[in-house]
Amino acid sequence: METAPIAGLQPLTKRERLREMVADALRAAVISGEMKPGAVYSAPTLGTMFGISATPVREAMLDLVREGMVEALPNKGYRVRVVPDEELDDVTHVRLLLEPPTVRDIVPAVPAGDFPRLRELADAIVEAVRDDDLVAYIHADRIFHLELLGYAGNKQLSAIVSELRSRTRLLGLTPLLESGRLESSAHEHHELLDLIEARDAAGAEALMVRHIGHVRGKWARGTADDAPPGPAAGKDGSP
């Protein structure tokens, strides 16, 4: 049931925000692939790696269960979840239905004075890639896109997209980071802001379609294929 020690898990000595610290470390291990898909990990063993009790590990694991990263196995531990291709296709399809048209609609609603702050959020995504920090990348990417969707004024839409994005945490990010291709995806956030600032609604919508396509192209497979296949694409391969 147990696997080899995980290099990224180091003993923790700070008591403050212990659950959050453990959860962040576990997310990093899952995203980087150090915690293997399908492998089962027990809270006591992970707690030993951290140098803490099993309780905060269990609490942190429950956060990851809610995020769809792991699944709880009664009396065994926690298994890193393998997301089926069909589920990835379905999630991508729904995101394509929601996010590109919403971005198109909010283009005239973004005040000119907000762009410096939005640029800072986009910078955080690029900086995370340059720091080789996938957890920070995913966090910054999530904040940026939810901030944009917030201009639509639809809290239900934002909540749905937030949940969908948490389910598309994919292992393909690691080879993309190592190859340097993830940085080009990171820079697309600035390209999107360029289009919004130019009030190019159609261009912003088209870029969002391509950007979400990475979920089933670059991100999911670790390749350069940007077109979302399956239900997210039409018969001719277009979204």
Rank of each mutant, 00 (worst) to 15 (best):
A233N: 04
V209Q: 14
R79Y: 03
L170W: 01
S166R: 15
K235M: 09
A7L: 12
S162E: 08
T223C: 12
L134E: 01
M61D: 01
D89T: 04
L171K: 09
D90E: 12
L177D: 00
R216Y: 06
L171V: 12
M69G: 00
R199N: 05
P239I: 05
R216P: 00
L182Y: 03
G8H: 00
A206C: 02
W219G: 04
R17E: 06
P175D: 05
V80H: 04
R221F: 15
T48S: 13
G203W: 06
K14P: 00
G68V: 13
T3E: 10
H211E: 05
A140L: 13
A140C: 13
E86V: 09
R95I: 10
T45M: 11
V107N: 03
L171M: 12
Q10V: 13
R19A: 11
L98Q: 06
E120Y: 00
V82H: 05
R66T: 12
L64V: 14
E188V: 08
I52K: 08
V80L: 10
E16C: 06
V22K: 03
A128W: 00
Q156Y: 04
A232W: 02
P56T: 09
S158F: 00
G68F: 04
R15E: 02
D89Y: 10
S179N: 13
K235R: 14
L46Y: 02
L170K: 10
R79W: 06
T92I: 06
S53R: 11
R117C: 04
A72Y: 14
L146C: 06
L164P: 05
A152V: 08
T168N: 07
V103L: 15
G237H: 02
D141L: 04
H211N: 09
P5N: 04
I138F: 03
L193V: 07
E99G: 02
R27Y: 00
V30W: 00
A39D: 07
E188R: 10
H145Q: 10
L64I: 11
R181V: 09
L73E: 05
A7E: 08
G203I: 14
A25E: 12
K235C: 05
E183N: 01
D105C: 09
G47R: 04
G237V: 08
D114R: 14
T13F: 11
D200R: 09
G230D: 10
S53M: 03
D131N: 13
G203V: 11
A159Q: 08
I6F: 03
E183Y: 00
D63S: 10
A4F: 06
K235L: 15
E163A: 15
A128Q: 02
G38Y: 03
L26C: 03
D90K: 08
A39Y: 02
L195T: 06
E197F: 11
A128R: 01
E197K: 13
P74F: 01
L170N: 04
L192H: 06
R169K: 14
P175L: 10
A28P: 01
S185F: 13
Y78I: 14
M49W: 15
E163G: 07
P11R: 10
M21K: 11
A232Y: 03
A39P: 03
D200T: 09
P116E: 05
V103A: 10
E87M: 13
H214N: 15
E120K: 14
Y41G: 07
L171D: 05
A152D: 06
G150E: 07
P5R: 12
G222P: 04
I6L: 12
M208K: 10
M49R: 13
M49D: 00
S158Y: 01
I6A: 07
V83Q: 11
A7P: 02
R165P: 00
D132K: 12
G33Q: 07
E67T: 07
